[in-house]
């Protein structure tokens, strides 16, 4: 009965070890799909490569279906799953900063380490930026403490806000995601670049 750590079926140390193995697998898949190319990530913004959208929404759909089916079979207790609490202004502010960094740097935090591991210097610069940001945030924390903690909403779920069951919400998100994939592939053709061939397999 999951979650394995919360129910003390495996120890936190074993959990870390499993996370390490999964992390290696995650990095391997990212790298082998070209996610260590900053052009692939920036392409999301310009529309010539929407792989990022497709990968992350496919992951979300897989995760949603997996959790709901495992809950249905009694393999996992969904009430013990950690749900990131919502601080509305932090989420919006953080989203804007992350998005700008994404376009400017061409990496997200995960893929920057992926790219650094194959020796890309711009990824190293990006990681330097991450640490600079962490330092700035923590050292000047009193300045944005109020903003950081403002508009705390608990852990609302889209399904409960809209008054739908989790299953119906999942079906809706699947349909929306497939629609977005279709728009994404249309955009890839519309905004295709002659010098960019990564997504033309």
């Amino acid at each position: 009965m999951g979650p394995l750590v919360a129910n003390e079926i495996i120890s936190p140390d074993t959990n870390l070890f499993l996370a390490f193995l999964i992390g290696i697998g995650f990095g391997f898949v990212l790298e082998s799909n070209g996610f260590s190319s900053s052009r692939r990530l920036a392409g999301m913004f310009y529309g010539y490569d929407t792989t990022v959208l497709k990968v992350f929404f496919t992951a979300a759909i897989t995760g949603m279906l997996g959790l709901l089916f495992m809950s249905l079979f009694g393999w996992i207790d969904l009430s013990l799953i950690y749900i990131n609490p919502t601080y509305l202004w932090s989420a919006i502010g953080g989203g804007v900063i992350m998005g700008v960094g994404f376009i400017l740097g061409g990496y997200c935090p995960g893929t920057s380490f992926c790219a650094a591991s194959i020796g890309k210097l711009d990824a190293l610069a990006f990681i330097g930026g991450i640490f600079l940001g962490v330092l700035l945030f923590t050292e000047a924390y009193p300045l944005w403490e109020n903003f950081f903690n403002a508009k705390y909403l608990g852990s609302p779920l889209l399904s409960s806000v809209l008054g739908l069951s989790r299953g119906v919400m999942t079906l809706l998100i699947i349909l929306v995601a497939l629609g977005m994939f279709w728009v994404g592939e249309w955009a890839e053709k519309r905004f295709a670049r002659d010098d960019y061939k990564l997504n033309q397999k």
Partner: peptide, 10 residues
């Protein structure tokens, strides 16, 4: 995913 989604919605 669509059939799975329909099942989980039902």
């Amino acid at each position: 995913v669509i059939p799975l989604g329909i099942i989980i919605a039902a």
